[in-house]
Structure formats: structure tokens, C-alpha cells
Amino acid sequence: MVEAGMESSQSIDPCTPSTTVGHPPTPECSAPPCTGAACDLVTVPTRQGLEAVDILRRGAGDAVGPVLHDDGCDTLGFVVPAGTAEGWDVPGSTCTQTDGRGLTLDPEPPVEGSDWLLPPGEADRATDPAVLRAALGEAARLIEAADNCR
């Protein structure tokens, strides 16, 4: 889902930082509206991403913004505010700076070979990075617990 010319930040650190996990969004720290020219994209494996979408949708308010999936069903991409990639450090995920290149919030998917799981019309705001970080952490713990029960 990443196009050439985009910069990415990927974390391989096995420990999720505790600085934002579990902290709810506040009015001064909530995700701003996302325009087609000012969004980054957090990409995660599909299983973790779907768990995170469920977690976010069960939360209060509009916690999840537009979400992309690839046609191979390997990854989900969460639209987040521009600048998120600079400090993104969640293990197992990648955050791509789009600088407005290749990511638009039109009904048509912005990247060839992808489609909207949650289209912009149903979710007009970018997902708050702190809320997404917490949901991805919770999703990883749920998946690990489920896998260990086998």
C-alpha cells in the first residue's frame, strides 16, 4: 500500500512504549480533520488491524477514521494525521508520510490494489494516533492470548 517516494517509519522494538497506551484522547490532543493533502498511513497486518477496528468501534465516539485494506488481505491501513510518522514506534507496524502524494480521501481507493474497509464518507476524521496505538496494543495482546490457548 505504500507508493514510491513516501517516507516510512517502522518499529521493530518488541516493547510497546507506555507513554500513550491507555490514555484517552483529549480535546487538545484529538486527531484533527484529515484533508487529502495532510494524512499519514499506519499499516498493520490484517488480523491485528481488524481486531483494532473492532476495539475502536466499541469505544466512545468516532474513534476510527478511514481504513484501507489491500486486495491480498495482508494489511490494513489507518489514516492518521500528518506528522504521525515522525514519532511512530509501534512494533509490527509501519507509518508512511504521504505529504499528500498517493493518499486522497475520495470514494475511490487511493492506491491501486486496495479498497476501503471504512470509507471516508462513513469515517471523515483521521484516527487519533494515541488511540490507535492503544488499540493496536490491546489487539496484539488479544491475539497472543488466543494463540496461546490452542
Score class of each variant (00 low, 15 high):
residue 32 P to Y: 06
residue 123 A to G: 00
residue 60 A to R: 12
residue 18 S to C: 10
residue 85 A to E: 11
residue 60 A to D: 14
residue 124 D to T: 14
residue 110 P to H: 03
residue 103 L to C: 14
residue 82 A to C: 07
residue 80 V to C: 11
residue 57 R to H: 11
residue 108 E to M: 15
residue 58 R to F: 08
residue 15 C to P: 02
residue 102 G to V: 09
residue 76 L to W: 01
residue 116 W to S: 02
residue 39 C to W: 00
residue 80 V to H: 03
residue 28 E to Q: 13
residue 93 S to G: 09
residue 46 T to R: 11
residue 112 E to K: 13
residue 18 S to V: 12
residue 51 E to R: 15
residue 32 P to H: 11
residue 23 H to C: 08
residue 116 W to N: 01
residue 56 L to D: 01
residue 20 T to R: 14
residue 14 P to M: 11
residue 122 E to A: 12
residue 17 P to N: 13
residue 107 P to R: 06
residue 100 G to A: 09
residue 65 G to D: 05
residue 102 G to Q: 04
residue 101 R to F: 15
residue 24 P to L: 06
residue 95 C to V: 09
residue 98 T to L: 06
residue 68 L to S: 05
residue 72 G to V: 08
residue 83 G to L: 04
residue 69 H to E: 11
residue 110 P to S: 07
residue 91 P to H: 13
residue 35 T to F: 13
residue 110 P to Y: 02
residue 24 P to C: 05
residue 57 R to M: 12
residue 60 A to H: 13
residue 102 G to A: 10
residue 47 R to I: 04
residue 41 L to K: 00
residue 27 P to L: 03
residue 63 A to I: 01
residue 99 D to S: 10
residue 120 P to V: 03
residue 31 A to H: 02
residue 119 P to D: 03
residue 80 V to I: 09
residue 97 Q to K: 12
residue 19 T to N: 15
residue 59 G to R: 13
residue 85 A to V: 02
residue 95 C to D: 05
residue 85 A to L: 03
residue 120 P to E: 01
residue 74 D to C: 11
residue 117 L to P: 00
residue 116 W to R: 06
